[in-house]
Nucleic acid binder design. Structure first.
Length: 428
RNA sequence: GGGGGGUUUCCCGAGCGGUCAAAGGGGUCAGACUGUAAAUCUGAUGGCACUGCCUUCACAGGUUCGAAUCCUGUACCCCCCA
């Protein structure tokens, strides 16, 4: 039995526990069940919710049994924690699809086969949907003093805002989550709940409920929120959220997100999200301090996290795309390979005849590919040396593109500046 | 109700009736440098058939050879006196 708390502790993953004194002995004595809930607000998890999931994984590797709970029921209500205003309710169909999508991702990170401590996936809709309103109020609601509920930060913050308010529905959220804990205690002997630090109130609500209903003392533990050195949340880019689903965020974009992590955040990310050993991480810290330009930490981070989420194949694809995006000329690749590498990039189909005869002028090509809004803009970028065809700089305004400028059988790769790409596909 | 000021290109902001697509700053984009960074430097920044033409300076009209600049009206904003 690995000392999981010691590991979480050096990684900086313990924000708060409900019982610092007894938790170590309780966990190190034998294999325990623990759970963490995830609300199905989208059909994919994102970087923000990755951290608790990785922690569940760590617990499992240390010999404990992780229970991943998707909030099919709680998702219908909306958690007020950390939200500044009332949430819109999701339709049942959307929720069902979201639960499905998230479960698939959990299957990748947790092992559901692993003998005595195989992970368990549960959906609180299964036990909540049949719970009648009256029974719930009598059995659960009776145990919640409104005073205590009003004192929770998640509620207090919303009430103090004045402009936002809080509906009775969201106010009740913590009762549902609290009951989940009791339910999992009864059915899976789960006595520990983990979550991000904003879940503290909900976790302690569950512990209080269990004490009142079952006279049992449960445990809770929170991890820090995954934030950047400047205080903002990780997992957001100008283009939006970084998702775990390859359909929403390609392995390449995912890999790039981590490659671009700030030096100041790299050490934290390595500790939080990778399974590298303490020695390896500290070696990387040293390397980063000595020669930050090499960005070994970021490379390693991107590699580890991308492999974790997208597997070896995804990592390979991300790397190959990176080579092309930041490398030399695009050549000796097939249509299919290019399509895969430039999966994220907008493309446009043009008739092949545009390449014959005089050929296609670069400026026109750039506009056709929607890289530039107008010809003037396209012309400007060519004049300033910021336009590239197949990663080769375009020399002048009157460059004409012909069949020889295709990178593969039918694809031409246009680039604007350092990173903005577009494809033109020439079809018969 | 009376008096005064304002409305400019993505934003702020300058703009003698002609030489204004409109100063300057910010932002954005590109290039150099670099660590796929930050900072810095350089250039660009309405459209097009680009040594020229077209559309823009709240809106609608007018004066003039010619208006973002003058006049009239309309809308919105600000200030002062009641």
């Amino acid at each position: 039995m690995t000392d999981i708390l010691a590991e979480l502790s050096w990684r900086g993953l313990i924000h708060q526990t409900t019982d610092d004194a007894h938790l170590p002995a309780w966990l190190n004595g034998e294999s325990r069940a623990l759970y963490c809930g995830f609300d199905p607000t989208a059909d994919s998890l994102h970087v923000g919710s990755l951290l608790p999931l990785v922690i569940l994984r760590r617990f499992q590797r240390a010999g404990h049994r992780p229970i991943a709970l998707v909030g099919g029921a709680t998702g219908m209500i909306g958690d007020p924690s950390g939200k500044s205003e009332e949430r819109k309710l999701l339709s049942l169909d959307v929720l069902r699809a979201n639960v499905e999508g998230m479960q698939n991702q959990m299957r990748m990170l947790l092992d559901f086969e692993r003998g005595s401590n195989a992970a368990i996936l549960v959906n609180n809709y299964d036990w909540m949907s049949g719970f009648s309103c009256l029974d719930f109020l009598r059995d659960v609601g009776k145990n919640f003093p409104v005073n205590a509920m009003l004192a929770k930060d998640s509620v207090k913050n919303r009430l103090e805002r004045g402009d936002a308010g809080l509906s009775y529905t969201e106010f009740s959220y913590m009762l549902l989550q609290a009951y989940d804990f009791v339910h999992l205690l009864e059915h899976h002997d789960c006595q520990l709940q983990i979550g991000a630090s904003d879940q503290w109130g909900n976790i302690t609500a569950g512990i209080d409920l269990a004490r009142r209903m079952k006279s049992v003392q449960l445990y809770g533990m929170t991890c820090p929120l995954l934030t950047k050195a400047d205080g903002s949340k990780m997992g957001k880019t100008e283009t939006g959220t970084v998702w775990l689903s390859p359909a929403r965020t390609s392995p390449y974009a995912f890999y790039q997100y981590w490659i671009n992590v700030d030096d100041l955040d790299a050490g934290k990310c390595l500790r939080f999200l990778t399974e590298l050993s303490r020695e390896e991480i500290e070696a990387l810290d040293g390397a980063r301090a000595a020669d930050p330009g090499k960005r070994e930490s970021q490379r390693r981070l991107a590699e580890e996290v991308t492999r974790l989420i997208h597997g070896e194949a995804g990592l390979r694809a991300a790397r190959r795309a990176t080579d092309v995006f930041f490398g030399a000329e695009v050549s000796e690749l097939s249509d299919a390979q290019l399509g895969e590498i430039f999966a994220d990039v907008p493309s446009r189909d043009l008739p092949r005849s545009r390449l014959s005869g005089e050929g296609l002028n670069v400026v026109d090509a750039i506009v056709e590919a929607s890289l530039a809004k107008s010809k003037g803009e396209a012309r400007r970028i060519v004049e300033q040396g910021g336009a590239y065809v197949n990663n080769r700089r375009v020399e002048g305004l009157n460059t004409q593109l012909g069949p020889n400028d295709l990178a593969s059988a039918s694809v031409m790769v246009l680039r604007w500046g350092k990173k903005k790409y577009a494809l033109l596909r020439f079809r018969d």
